[in-house]
Design a protein around this nucleic acid. Sequence first.
DNA 1: CTACCGATTGACT
DNA 2: GTCAATCGGTAGA
Length: 224
Amino acid sequence: MSAQPLSRRFYARDVAVVARDLLGRLLWRESADGVTSGRIVEVEAYLPEGDTACHAFRGPTRRNATMFGPPGRAYVYAIHSRWCLNAVTEPEGSACAVLIRAVEPAAGVELMRARRRREALLELARGPARLCEAFAIDRALDGWDLTRGEQLWIARGPRSRLAGEQVAVSPRIGVTSAHDLLLRYYLAGNRFVSGRRNPKPESSKRRAGELQPQPATRRGKVNE
DNA sequence: CTACCGATTGACT
DNA sequence: GTCAATCGGTAGA
């Protein structure tokens, strides 16, 4: 079942590991207007320690309270009068989250067009605030439990989550500090990824930005 | 209360 | 490529 929600255990792991593992998964939204879904193609991790760009860096506030709660909840915040969606990760007390930066529209494309008041498929959910508008995500969903599998959740997706696609890494977009951290993960060559051009990877040739083999993850593998 | 800032977007040169 | 709208969050008086 491609709409089955990811579990609490999935989100309770290291934030960078969860971020990378969210690529290729399906974001689902059920509202009074109808259902939309999209394939996650770009994410960013915000670390619980030493990350000046993380909203939790200076301690808890009213806005970031959800980040200090249990994993698997939606952290929705506003910037420049727009909304952005995160998934809270790691065990409670470790304030960190994954920003969902772009999805490739799947179901409910016409509903997304109406909400965005735009026709172009590439303009519907390419960018964190754009996807929130297309999926009718706002402040009311801050703190929503993404493991419930209703209203708003992320699903396991198809068995071949990344069908031969390469994961690329880069500094995060838009942040004014911590440019040295490579915590943006995206599908190389995918046209629904935000930012400047995202060229298709050349086959059998190492390129800058290509993900190097990862060191062993701290926690066990989760098969979801 | 005021002042400042930003994990953005869309319009424009 | 540049730039500013626009407003919630935050810190500080």
